[in-house]
Design a protein around this nucleic acid. Structure first.
Length: 890
RNA sequence: GCGGAAGUGGCGGAAUGGCAGACGCGAAGGCCUUAGGAGCCUUUGUCCUGACGGGCGUGGGGGUUCGAGUCCCCCCUUCCGCACCA
């Protein structure tokens, strides 16, 4: 703010300059006194003398940022300010509050910058982290700074690697539905308690064979499996990192399905628990729903359909969620890629083949080949856009096991190779897709559930079974159960659950990530390093880039940056049987790894004996009663992490729980998605973005200089030239004004546009509060001790009660509105009374902490107000005026 | 297509089924000023009226109720997620 004439501004007015003096002073005070340090029950952060030692705890966390080179804009700290206001309030309300902050610092941008400039990613990352710390410090966020870390700190990723080893050394016991030590599995094989896959006994297996068997059970395992290979990036990607169009989320390069040897995590083993435990979480319903959809659990049955006349007694296994409709299965469909297709095709079209089924081909083999070719040529979009179902008859028939009917087997791309068994039984009467296909190919339709009168098309709803022998009359649920037990009794199938969720591809061909704590011996099988050898530090290299290829070169091979560092890759170690040469794993972990467990490390950040002391974990995150999952009390972040980060973190947390390292079985008890701050951007007639700052509005139109520009609404970003930074706001108004503005502009979970010109309203509010206490001309404190007018007193207590309620519910915008209302009521009074001003300052302190501390001092108090009791309303002052309602007497 | 969330002044947004528009921005007028892009005061949903007053108003249409922005039904629009998942 430019002061055109200093003499005109009263010398003791609350201005940006004054805020610029007050704010660093109090930030230094808090840092010096460790004001926001929270005591642990045990360990180096224990402090029995702390005013909140032994108090009820509250653990609040933000989704930590990735410190990008661009720095923060005003949208980034919205959630951080929200949690800061909440935790400051809760601290005053008597809680022992843990509110930490760290940095998610491994990842692609620093590496790409390194590839371009040769600067080591660590250098860039550290500079960015420092910049973020400075920007956040200016906002006066009340963190326990002893607990901060970056995921790139070796002292941190040592434990990321340790957790990887826990997962590597675990297997999932389906009977107990939990992860157990891999040694238990070996013991079960040795004693014969568990059957060894492959038919031979444990004693018959060689040492290498035994290792191979065991490796097949690990929760972290190497698999030669179809993965998403992205030549343009030179790395493989998780399914979650591939767009629906089949391109990389980063860089938008083509992605190819390729079979490659990669590390996988057996997250599918946890599918049931990841779905079921959502029920006990206090999360936004949309996020729970997105997780349920992503996991995609379907309950039903596997059913085997023998192939008619097959010399090798082939059968087609399908998965269905509607085993009750089996009597209505009038044909079958295999995915074009299904491996069985080639083995069941007869040499010639069977008698009675309808011409429309053949695709015009002379024999089934040609028909299928042609169909496959055309299906492969289609893009993903064409496959789904075109509503009309396509397909071709294989010439083969299968036998419906419930009634012995011969039903034709088709190949069609509406059946996906990657889901279920890649084959379906088609029940056109009860499935819309099958109905469509049946109409096109003139296949019989048999209803097996009574549809409502006049119903047209496939009926998927409830109703009594019909045309279904012994099932007739049963409801869908009963009929399913009955059919499943019939299938199991007669050996035609079993009840089954499938998931859309796939195992998690966990290795990346990148430099800037956690190295795996894995080496290989001469057998080529992986060996987990002993804990004593952690961390496996990321070595320096000359070239940070994986080998990248032409984006369309599907046949290229991954080559990791670490693999080129031969003296690191080849290493002599003593793993218990004397020094031997080993080969290191040269992939690194994906960026998600560090954020999968950071909520735990805050609890005991310096512990070098264990990940977190069980007592500290139980105190901060333990279950509060039967059925409570435990976890962080409030986790605030953007909805963009609804699936990936939150699913991975839940998975790791559950493994650690199963292995007895922690007492909570969910990481985040309550989740809150803050909204986004968006911004206007402006383009001129040519479509060129102009700096938003310099655009002026006249009569609802927008001008950049003389030319009119068009306004659009979207994200804040460099390319849209509409970035506003918190630093600018601190310079122009002060951090307190900025904080109040962000909290007052609307509910925390709603997205809204940034408007710099509206910030002044928050500054006026703080100025008025200041003026109630301080004479602007003399600087004298003008607060008196006379009792409040009864009407104002009632307002005061109404405000106190309302603010408390709002704060508890994270409704900061209405809390601030109430404080403004009280301030406006006090403003016309001849002198502000201490009776009102002390509670007002205390209530304001979560939002404008520096100003409040300063005023608290002026009101005659020493030290910080951070541990003062938050005002409480006197119930006697809350008695509402009675209102008479008309009452109807019947 | 399926699922979810939401539609209130010029703008951001308030309203346990009980005076719609709290609070803020903007705008208009005034005070103070050489000056105002500072500060302070007043007004500000909309229409009729000189005024006092009054009519109409929460996306649209029905309904429940003494009373509906709020509850129920139908429709429209916007945003988000998923998308041939058997």
């Amino acid at each position: 703010m430019v002061m055109t004439s200093e003499s005109e501004t009263p010398p003791f007015r609350y201005t940006a300059e004054m805020a610029g003096e007050i704010e660093p002073r109090w930030q230094a005070y808090w840092a010096e006194h460790g004001t926001f340090d929270a005591p642990n029950p045990v360990g180096d952060l224990a402090d029995p003398a702390h005013p909140r030692a032994g108090a009820p705890k509250l653990h609040v966390q933000d989704m930590f940022p990735y410190p990008s080179g661009a720095g923060l804009h005003v949208g980034h700290p919205l959630g951080y300010i929200g949690t800061d206001c909440y935790t400051r309030y809760k601290r005053m309300a008597g809680f022992n509050v843990l509110h930490p902050m760290g940095f998610d610092a491994f990842g692609l941008p620093a590496e790409q910058y390194a590839v371009q400039t040769g600067t080591h990613p660590r250098t860039t990352t550290e500079a960015n982290v420092e910049r973020y710390r400075d920007q956040l410090r200016r906002l006066g966020l009340a963190y326990d700074n002893r607990r901060t870390f970056a995921t790139t700190d070796p002292a941190y990723y040592r434990w990321t690697q340790w957790i990887f080893l826990q997962i590597f050394h675990s297997w999932f016991d389906p009977e107990r539905r939990k992860a157990r030590p891999i040694d238990d599995l070996i013991a079960e094989f040795e004693t014969g308690a568990r059957e060894v896959p492959g038919g031979r006994s444990w004693a018959q297996l060689s040492a290498v064979e035994r290792r191979q068997v065991v490796d097949g059970f690990r929760l972290a395992y190497i698999s030669e499996a179809p993965v998403n290979w992205c030549p343009g990036l030179g790395t493989v990607l998780a399914n979650e990192e591939v767009t629906p169009e089949g391109r990389s989320e980063r860089g938008n390069f083509p992605v190819f399905r390729r079979s490659l040897k990669q590390w996988m995590m057996r997250i599918t083993a946890y599918g049931d628990r990841l779905v079921d435990d959502l029920d006990v979480l206090d999360w936004p319903e949309p996020v729970k729903l997105m997780q349920r959809n992503w996991i995609g659990r379907s309950r039903g049955a596997h059913v085997d359909f023998p192939v008619a006349g097959s010399p090798d007694a082939e059968s087609i296994s399908v998965f269905t969620t509607r085993p009750d409709t089996l009597f209505g299965a009038t044909y079958m469909v295999l995915a074009p890629e299904h491996e069985l297709v080639d083995r069941i095709i007869p040499a010639a079209w069977p008698e009675g083949t309808k011409p429309a089924w053949t695709g015009g081909a002379r024999n089934p083999a040609e028909a299928v080949q042609a169909y496959r070719a055309s299906a492969a040529a289609k893009t993903e979009e064409q496959r789904t856009e075109g509503k009309d179902k396509t397909g071709v008859f294989t010439g083969a028939y299968a036998i419906n096991p419930v009634n012995g009917e011969r039903i034709p087997v088709f190949v069609a791309d509406y059946v996906l190779a990657g889901y279920g068994t890649g084959a379906i039984m088609a029940v056109p009467g009860q499935d819309a897709r099958d109905w469509e296909f049946a109409e096109i190919f003139d296949l019989p339709i048999i209803r097996t559930v009574q549809a409502p009168e006049g119903f047209e098309g496939a009926y998927t709803g409830e109703g009594p079974a019909i045309n279904s022998d012994w099932l007739d009359g049963m409801g869908v649920v009963d009929a399913k159960a009955s059919m499943i037990s019939w299938l199991e009794q007669h050996g035609h199938g079993t009840g089954a659950t499938t998931f859309r969720l796939r195992d998690w591809l966990f290795s990346r061909q990148r430099y800037w990530g956690e190295p795996f704590p894995i080496v290989y011996d001469e057998t080529g099988l992986p060996i987990g390093l002993p804990e004593s050898m952690l961390p496996v530090e990321l070595p320096d290299v000359d070239d940070f880039s994986p080998r990248t290829y032409d984006p369309d070169d599907a046949d290229s091979e991954p080559e990791t940056p670490l693999s080129r560092k031969k003296e690191w890759v080849q290493v002599e170690l003593d793993l218990g049987d004397g020094p031997k040469m080993y080969t290191r794993e040269t992939n690194t972990m994906p960026q998600w790894a560090g954020s999968c467990w950071y909520e735990l490390r805050y609890l005991d950040p310096h512990n070098d004996k264990v990940l977190v002391d069980p007592e500290n974990e139980a105190y901060w995150m333990g279950p509060q009663g039967p059925g409570d999952p435990g976890g962080v009390d409030l986790y605030v972040g953007g909805v963009e992490h609804a699936v990936l980060h939150l699913l991975y973190a839940r998975f790791w947390h559950k493994v650690l729980y199963d292995r007895g390292h922690i007492s909570s079985f969910e990481p985040f008890r309550k989740l809150f998605n803050q909204g986004y701050i968006q911004a206007y951007a402006y383009r001129d007639a040519r479509g060129v973005v102009v700096p938003a700052e310099e655009v002026v509005e006249r009569d609802g139109r927008y001008f950049y200089g003389e030319q009119e520009v068009a306004r659009e609404y979207g994200k804040m970003g460099k390319s849209l030239k509409n970035v506003v930074t918190p630093d600018e706001m601190c310079d122009q108004y002060g951090a307190d004004t900025f904080r109040v503005y962000e909290m007052a502009m609307g509910p925390l979970d709603v997205s809204r546009p940034w408007e710099t010109r509206a910030v002044v309203g928050s500054q006026r509010f703080l100025q008025r509060v200041w003026r109630l206490v301080v004479d602007e001309e003399t600087g004298a404190v003008r607060v008196g001790d006379e009792p409040l007018d009864p009407a104002v007193r009632r307002l005061l207590h109404r405000v106190i009660a309302g603010v408390r309620e709002d704060m508890d519910e994270l409704r900061f915008n209405t809390a601030i509105a109430k404080l403004i209302e009280l301030t406006n009521a006090l403003t016309p009074l001849p002198a502000a009374s201490r009776e009102a001003m002390e509670p007002l300052v205390l209530m304001l302190s979560p939002f404008a902490p520096h100003l409040a501390e300063e005023l608290w001092g002026k009101l005659g108090h020493d030290g910080t107000l951070a541990y003062m009791d938050f005002p409480e309303a006197d119930p006697a002052q809350l008695v509402a005026e009675s209102i008479i309602y008309p009452v109807q007497v019947n």
